[in-house]
Design a protein around this nucleic acid. Sequence first.
DNA 1: ACGCTCCAGGTTGTCGGACAACTAGCGCGG
DNA 2: CCGCGCTAGTTGTCCGACAACCTGGAGCGT
Lengths: 247, 247
Amino acid sequence: MTSSQSLRHQLAQELRSLIRSGKLAPGDKLPSEPELAHERAVSRSSMRAAITMLEEEGFVSRRHGSGTYVTHRPALPNDLSRNFGVSSLIASTGLEPGTAEETCELVLAPPFVAEALEVPEGAEVTSLRRVRTADGRRFVDTTDWCRADHLSPEKLSGMGDGSVYAALAARGLVVHHGVATITPGNADAETALRLGVARGALLLTIDQVDMTAEGVPVLVSREHHLADAFSFTVVRHGPGVGPEVDR
Amino acid sequence: MTSSQSLRHQLAQELRSLIRSGKLAPGDKLPSEPELAHERAVSRSSMRAAITMLEEEGFVSRRHGSGTYVTHRPALPNDLSRNFGVSSLIASTGLEPGTAEETCELVLAPPFVAEALEVPEGAEVTSLRRVRTADGRRFVDTTDWCRADHLSPEKLSGMGDGSVYAALAARGLVVHHGVATITPGNADAETALRLGVARGALLLTIDQVDMTAEGVPVLVSREHHLADAFSFTVVRHGPGVGPEVDR
DNA sequence: ACGCTCCAGGTTGTCGGACAACTAGCGCGG
DNA sequence: CCGCGCTAGTTGTCCGACAACCTGGAGCGT
């Protein structure tokens, strides 16, 4: 089960790898669609569908009658709209990930968590709080909440630097997308203590609600990042091409 | 010239409008592809291509053998990956936009600007600095830099609350995408003065480089947002569907 | 020698039809 | 009542064809 996705997803994946690995450099012209399709023994339709996905993501740009070209796009250190989870965040930097101060318990859902998870106020939810480290240095304080009937504290605890997404997926809850809200802030007494910094230290807080494709919210998380630990980047699509003009 | 885009882009645009207007609510099942295609007198191929774009953007989710469904996606106040420019940011909140402290001049490019715009260090570039207001309250201090041969200070000055993107597009420089970096920070003396807040006030800084589809960088901007003015959101695509698994 | 037009090849865009793979719900039989 | 299989409906993939468009060069006239 190397990949149970549909064909065009696999093809898109391969093209993305080619671009990221540098085999297809920015500005390069891709082989023609029939050629790409023939090389891989797939139909042009599937190849076109894959390229359409890449185009929508901004990796390539098509020019009618001319060809398809790789977009100039810098290597993003931390693409907010793509990367998921602190684990992959650390992994992408090459640092050694670790975990400290892990607590997993049943707690009363804070109001904003209850609302996001669509459970009654005051209901008990599973909470996982961790301090994540890179090369031993503490740099982010995370708290995850999910419904107790989705994932019990026993199932969730002791996962170390594993991803909560994997634990959820094992229960059939595949996260499809999430909405993150980004705000700057200063460390309160507790967070400062956990991160080992002075109170009032500069933080970047990311609040996120993750849901399945059906729109069922399954995970709420709040991450306090040290300001100088990472810088986050986002690719923004221009007004001309993207879904704008209206509203 | 309502839209000179390719057919599938128009179709995708129409579907997006249907979803945003609420005619297609989250969870709804779309009509089948042949049906949608027949209604609009287009081929199923084009309709499929349009839906593929929507799928990649996360608006809909396809299920083989079942149908295509509208994703449960909340209305985003400020979608970082879509919205462009402070103007549209204010407009989306319903507040009255305004501009103060506008300065437009030729300056020596700061190192990071020179590098991003690919001009020699020490070259002169056009700089536009503005304090943007909403309902009269100052809330963001922006500086834009672009190549002097792309847009002269005369062309750029006196645009009030207009968008720099429009001015660039009028010169044939259509911004295709941009890369934004987000960092928290504290206001230095000058920024604090311009924004009318105490020195050290909490800020969210967005550094951005905008480029054309050919990868030519045309605009560099730095925006200092007051922390309590806006909260920014990003839609993140899940690990299961998105381009992950490798790296 | 220079510039212009025209043309031919290559590439993407759209079309139509066909079949495979899969889902979900219904009805039948146990 | 439960479970099984069947069937209609839907998405996934394939094939072939033609239109629209871009690019570069050949050929012509000046």
